[in-house]
Structures are given as structure tokens and as C-alpha cells.
Amino acid sequence: MTVSVRALRPDARADLEGFARVRHAALPFVLVTPESLAHDLTRLHPDAHYRPLVAVADGEVIGTAQVHLTHESAEPGQGNVNVYVHPGHTRRGAGTLLVRAAEEHLTAHGATRLFAWVVDEPGNRVFAEAHGYRASRAAHFLRLDLANGTLPPLQDPPPGVELRPGSDFAADPRPLFELDAETTADEPSDVDTEFTDYEAWLEETWRHPLFSAELTTVALVDGRPAAFSAARTDGGTRYGTVMTGTARAHRGRGLAKLAKNDSLHRARAAGYTEAFTGNDTGNGPMIAINKWFGYEICGTEVRYVRALG
């Protein structure tokens, strides 16, 4: 059975649905829909050279690759290759074809170092190492049962602190962009990133079809955003927090925990039954917060790195 690789297109509905189906089968902890894939294809910054790929056999998508440069990094040449093959279609060469096509694309656009998230299973790790990648940091996926679990009770904000939904900033989201940029810069990572392009952030984050401004919670101190918990949903029953953080001047006061608890309670009230999030294994403070909420680790990925040339 012949396997071929082609670029994902925003007008190819069957491929978009196949991409989402494979990603859900291989990595069920991350929210993705055909609509979110089409949005990324048409809205990501040109400097990312974003080129997702699909591996196809007998007309069916059996593998996917997310391929792009980290254009927000001050250090040029940082490429990303995240390959996932449907668990029922492994060992057919799809992964190797996807890696080869991804590396060719990124090399052509000046990549000098490649990063890949790899599901922490022996076969996946052997595959990555056989292609010249070496293990780096790790990250956990965490799941919380919103339908049957028990959330910590809501707490009244301390004096001078107010909780508001992200949708209250619809007229001017820039304060949330500035807060997101500051907290993202301090996240543990192999690659430093800097959000400096407000218009790109609007397209890629604020206007993303999975982003829920209504379920995002912002903690204000004396009227200014100081902490937040950003939410995404799949339009069904699954909800995820994709970034939770606090401005440097306000850390140590429990504001991120306060914001996330408010968002979780509102997500459950809105009918969402599962909550997902992710943590770098070295991010002790956030791991402690998520354990306090009742999240349980449901998967782990290892970051692999390959230097080129």
C-alpha cells in the first residue's frame, strides 16, 4: 500500500477532517478542529513558513505533521517538526516520509535547529533518535473531570482585585496581549519567544476559532490586568486552559489560581465535561496549582532536538 505526503490546504475539507481525526487519535489531550486548522493555515504570520502536512494511504489521512519556524524567537533558524501517525497505521513509513518532507521545507527556509514533541512511548522515542534527534525537556498533559469531579470552592477576590471575563476586553484586547507577552517570555522552554507583534497576536490568538474570550478570566489589580487564565473550547464538551500566568510585579499572591478557578467553574456551568491543560515538567508552581484543582497526568511528551549541518 503506497503512502504519499502532501501539504494541507485550507480548502481541502477531507484532509482537514483527516488531520483532526489523526491528531485526536494520537494526541487526544489537545483541542483541534478542521476550522482551527484552516484558521492557522490562513492566519499564521508569513515568517513562520507554516506548512502542515498529511500522509495519505488509499485516500485516507493516516499521519500529520505541523511544520513551522518559531518566528517570535530572537534567535533565527528555530524550526518545529511535530509528527503524529494514527495508532492503527504505524510502521508503514508515513512518519519517515513526513519527517523528510518537513525537514526539507524548514531547511529551505533557513532552519539550523529543529525541535519535535514526541509522545513518551518507547517506539516513538526510538523513531526520533533514529532520525538524529536527541531528548531534551518534557511536558505533561493533564485532565480534569469537570462533570464528576469536585472543584475547589470559589473565593472572593482580595481587596483591590477584580475578576472579569476576557470578553470585557473585546473593544481593546491590547492589555491582555501585553500580559500574555510578559508571562510567555518567562515560561520554561528550549527557545525564548517574544510577542512583539500585536496584529499577529490578534490573528493567531484572540481571533482563533478555539479561543473563548467568554471563558477566559482576567484578574485586575487596581483596574489593570495582573493575571489571567486563557481558555479554548472545541465547540463540544472539551475545554482547555492554554496559558495561565501572572505579571511579574504581582506574583506570589495566588492571582493565577484565583483566575483559573473562576474560569473552570464557569466552564462547568456552561456544560463542558472535560478540562485539559499542559505543564512543563520543570514548572513546579503551575504543577502544584493544577494538582490543587484535581488535575491528573494523562500523558507525557518529550522535546527532541536536532542540530542541522
Rank of each mutant, 00 (worst) to 15 (best):
V118N: 07
A138P: 00
R51T: 02
H45F: 11
L179A: 06
R268Y: 12
L8K: 03
R232T: 15
T216F: 06
L202H: 15
A20E: 07
G63H: 09
G166L: 00
E162G: 00
V5A: 10
G79Q: 03
T64F: 04
A147V: 11
A139F: 10
T64V: 13
V30P: 00
R303I: 14
G284M: 09
H109D: 04
P76E: 14
W206L: 11
E214N: 02
G252P: 04
T246L: 04
N261K: 01
A171K: 04
V22T: 08
H89P: 08
S73W: 14
D58G: 13
E301Q: 15
I297H: 05
T42M: 05
E182D: 06
E60G: 06
R238E: 09
G18Q: 05
A185T: 09
A108Q: 09
L44Y: 08
P46Y: 03
G88L: 08
P158C: 03
P152Q: 04
A116F: 01
A20G: 01
P46C: 02
G278K: 01
D190C: 12
H45Q: 02
V61M: 09
P34M: 08
A94L: 02
V67K: 08
D168A: 11
E17F: 01
G245V: 13
P188L: 05
P225E: 08
